[in-house]
């Protein structure tokens, strides 16, 4: 009989990440990577006090965790699956550890930082 796959764990995180990316990332990239650096909007938007203030409240902490961690899971899952698409079939366990490990690290590190802030 076929063995149950553990894929639902990473697939759920991938799905949640995909939703977050689809609903936030175009705007976030525009603000942090284009509008503020080019001076299209006031630099105050990303001023230290404002961001530190955001990371101070529980809502801000949750928001920052969500927009960093979940996209990493989404990205890791897709890249991991693409390896097979490109004919890289060996070293599955190794790549799993690398990609999902990176996403896990990208979840625990911000969690740790945010709790301490």
């Amino acid at each position: 009989m076929s063995k149950r796959s553990n894929e639902p764990i990473v697939w759920s995180l991938f799905g949640a990440g995909g939703v977050v990316v689809a609903h936030t990332m175009p705007v976030l990239i525009f603000v942090t990577g284009i509008a503020v650096p080019l001076g299209l909007v006031s630099a105050d938007v990303l001023a230290y006090e404002r961001l530190a203030g955001l990371a101070d409240g529980w809502f801000g902490k949750l928001f920052l965790l969500v927009i960093i961690s979940l996209p990493l899971w989404q990205s890791a899952h897709r890249i991991f699956l693409s390896l097979h698409d490109f004919g890289i079939t060996g070293g599955e366990t190794f790549f799993r550890v690398v990609f999902y490990g990176a996403a896990l690290w990208g979840t625990l590190l911000p969690l740790f930082l945010l709790v301490g802030m």
Partner: peptide, 21 residues
């Protein structure tokens, strides 16, 4: 599927930002 590469790099950029913050 390739969009995932950009998504991943951007998330890391944000993570670095949080570290700096």
């Amino acid at each position: 599927e390739s969009t995932a590469v950009f998504v991943g790099i951007y998330a890391v950029i944000l993570l670095v930002g949080l570290l700096r913050l």
